Computed example of a mutant assay.
Amino acid sequence: MAETTAICQAAPDAAAIEAMARAALARIPSPFAEHLADVVLLIEDYADDETLAALGIDEPIDLTGIYHGRPIGEKSSFESGALPDRIHLYRLPILWEWIETGVALDALVHHVVVHEVGHHFGLSDDDMHALEDAAGEETAG
């Protein structure tokens, strides 16, 4: 009887997700990249209760990432003492979406990072969806 070996792979940890996110940030083109140097990237398992409540989200699994800060167009050179802009990625919701959708994990992390970077530049969710749809039509046509 042939012996079978079960392959059990551990879920990617925060460091692995961070490496994918940093690779995604490195692919952001100029002139946008120059505006990201001071943005802090944080990887956490889930959003905290305060963030979820502020967004009206009941299930932590529903939030894969969030941008905290003021969009570039709203910043003033007279501001001081503000926290740095931050992009939070939430590892477990990202992994859940990865399992549910079958999308490559690095592509999914790239998508979430680009989405949150869009908020850094002041784009709304609707604006980003329209851009994604337009990009999809260009590649399909």
Results as ranks from 00 to 15, higher is better:
A37P: 00
G69K: 07
A135E: 07
P60M: 02
L83A: 09
A19E: 06
L25H: 14
I87M: 05
E34S: 08
V109P: 05
A33R: 08
M20G: 00
P29M: 08
R86N: 02
M20W: 01
E74L: 03
H115F: 11
D126M: 14
D58F: 06
P93R: 06
L63V: 01
A134V: 00
V39D: 11
A21F: 00
G102Y: 14
I57M: 05
H88D: 06
L83W: 00
D85H: 01
A33E: 02
I66Q: 09
L95P: 14
E100G: 03
V103Q: 07
D48H: 12
D62K: 07
A135Q: 13
I57S: 05
I94M: 08
P31V: 07
L41D: 10
H119Q: 12
E74R: 08
I99C: 09
P31L: 09
Y90P: 09
G81K: 03
I17G: 04
G122C: 05
M128E: 14
S80Y: 07
L131R: 01
I43P: 07
H35Y: 13
E74V: 14
H111V: 13
A53S: 02
I61T: 15
H115K: 06
A130I: 07
F121A: 05
H110C: 09
R91T: 10
L131I: 12
S77A: 12
A33V: 02
A53I: 09
P29V: 10
A14K: 11
K75G: 05
V113R: 04
D48M: 14
S76I: 10
T101H: 05
S80P: 00
G81C: 11
R91P: 01
L63C: 04
E44H: 08
E116D: 10
L108F: 00
A134M: 01
A107F: 15
R22T: 13
F32W: 10
H115W: 01
H119E: 00
L89S: 02
L108W: 00
